[in-house]
């Protein structure tokens, strides 16, 4: 018997042409029968074209997940946007192939994209074009942009684990602040 997965046909038909790669459009459901639709865009710039039919249909932006790919053959970074519409979740992945790649802001369609975009900008250093409010969200301006984008050597990460090292760091920072 063929499984029927709940979803909005018009929205799926509007987004699918933007995803022409192998397995770029997938549909599945969980054990409770809730539908999940997965799209992988060919070009991150078409994110606004994907957001438009979702906004028109009354979808809600739930979250945006930025992450780094670990295999050299993969795009460097990807962003997966998660939308909810009539109980089904639409996941749209925008691959950022190289360092300078950017994704357009979707705040014109989803006002609540503001925080999600600012978070991916500060934690992953993702470039979001036309972001109307590109301020830091959580992290202090003095922290480097894209803290989660890059490998941190264990020895550096462990600096705070030793109480002597930790206080030496704090005192050093204090001195440099005074200077």
């Amino acid at each position: 018997m063929q499984e029927t997965i709940a979803g909005n046909g018009a929205v799926i038909d509007a987004i699918a042409p933007l995803c022409t790669g192998v397995n770029a459009v997938r549909h599945n459901s969980d054990t409770f029968g809730n539908g999940y639709h997965w799209f992988r865009l060919d070009d991150p710039k078409s994110m606004t074209k994907a957001a438009e039919p979702l906004a028109k249909a009354g979808a809600r932006l739930c979250m945006a997940s930025a992450y780094n790919r670990r295999q050299p053959a993969d795009p460097r970074q990807e962003i997966c946007y998660h939308f909810e519409l009539d109980g089904a979740v639409y996941n749209i992945t925008a691959p950022l192939a190289d360092e300078g790649a950017s994704v357009p802001s979707i705040t014109a369609f989803f006002a609540n994209a503001d925080w999600h975009e600012r978070e991916m900008m500060e934690l992953y250093g993702v470039k979001v074009s036309d972001q109307p409010n590109p301020r830091r969200l959580f992290l202090d301006e003095r922290k480097d942009k894209g803290l989660l984008d890059g490998a941190v050597p264990l020895s550096v990460m462990m600096n705070g684990a030793c109480s002597k090292d930790l206080w030496e760091h704090i005192l050093k920072d204090k001195e440099s602040d005074k200077a």
Binding site: D30, Y36, W38, C62, M63, S65, Y67, C80, H82, E84, V89, N91
Partner: peptide, 19 residues
């Protein structure tokens, strides 16, 4: 693989994504 899940917490929807 990748997957998402969501529930209704006391304050509203909680959303998780895992790869």
């Amino acid at each position: 693989a990748e997957a998402v899940a969501r529930t209704e917490a006391p304050r509203g929807e909680v959303f998780y994504y895992i790869r």
